[in-house]
Amino acid sequence: MALATILLVDDEVPFVETMTKRLVKRELEVIPAYDGPAALARLEENPRIEVVILDVKMPGMDGIETLSEIKKRHPLVEVVMLTGHATVESAIEGMKKGAFDYLMKPCDIEVLVAKVTEAAARKRKQEEKIIEAQMREITSRRT
């Protein structure tokens, strides 16, 4: 069983390919996507996806837009933004829109794995809380 299932979104194909190999080697399940709309499609297909690694600067639908869309449709899925130039504005905007964290490209793979694991853990915790809440509701209804 993989540590976490992630969606890797970037318009640079070689980057996605190599990164995928490296993450797989670190026992992560990686689904690649090369632009915003593809990312949203993959998310629909795979409810297992826990964390999205999202490049900010992409042609067409950019990272911030994709982030908003993901958060709208899948609020529990965590997003780690990846950018070439982390400006204060885009960082603030991303965080406001609910990104888990920000990483500068190129980044150390171990840091990325740690971040992703952390994000996945939070997602699971959130899900547990929701299940707990739902359970409590059911049990209280019985009593």
């Binding site: 980057f15 190599t18 990164m19 490296r22 070439g84 130039h85 490209k105 190129p106 793979i109």
Partner: peptide, 19 residues
């Protein structure tokens, strides 16, 4: 940004080779 992309790829490839 344009330079950053190939640089990121190179770093990843180097990382992969290390792996």
């Amino acid at each position: 940004h344009e330079i950053n992309n190939p640089v990121a790829i190179m770093v990843e490839e180097a990382g992969w080779m290390q792996d």
